[in-house]
């Protein structure tokens, strides 16, 4: 049912964990199935230099989480914002139709983390 790439990322997920002093954190619950993802990013000079995740979810959720952390690394925030669920799914050689919503988790968590970073920065600037 899953592509070899999904299984590979499921079995050896990259960048699992938390970043203590993260610049942005995105936590998202999947309303469809109840699964949860937490994504941490570290930003320097407008680029994401590190990303880590923790996910409670199905194989696709874990694989897409892993993949999104790989995809964003080194990207500018503008570039990262363009990463959609399709980008993630394609990078994994596709997902079964019923599992497409799983990649929302990763894509949405990323957008939330970027938003969180921007909010934090704005708050700092106002101080």
């Amino acid at each position: 049912m899953y592509s070899a790439k999904v299984m590979e990322h499921f079995q050896n997920p990259r960048n699992v964990g938390e970043i203590e002093d993260a610049d942005g954190v995105g936590e998202i619950g999947n309303p469809v199935c109840g699964d949860i993802m937490k994504l941490y990013i570290k930003v320097k000079d407008g680029r994401i230099i590190e990303a880590k995740f923790k996910t409670f979810g199905c194989g696709a959720a874990i694989a897409t989480s892993s993949m999104v952390t790989e995809l964003v690394k080194g990207k500018t925030l503008e570039e990262a914002k363009k990463i959609s669920r399709n980008t993630v799914a394609e990078a994994l050689d596709g997902l079964p139709p019923i599992k497409m919503h799983c990649s929302n988790l990763a894509a949405d968590a990323l957008q939330k983390a970027i938003e969180d970073y921007k909010n934090k920065r704005n708050a700092k600037d106002q101080k």
């Binding site: 899953y2 299984m7 499921f10 079995q11 699964d35 409670f56 979810g57 199905c58 194989g59 959720a61 874990i62």
Partner: peptide, 14 residues
Amino acid sequence: KGVEGESVILSLDT
């Protein structure tokens, strides 16, 4: 606790 079902099934399946 803390673990989702499908991920266990897949892991055992491998």
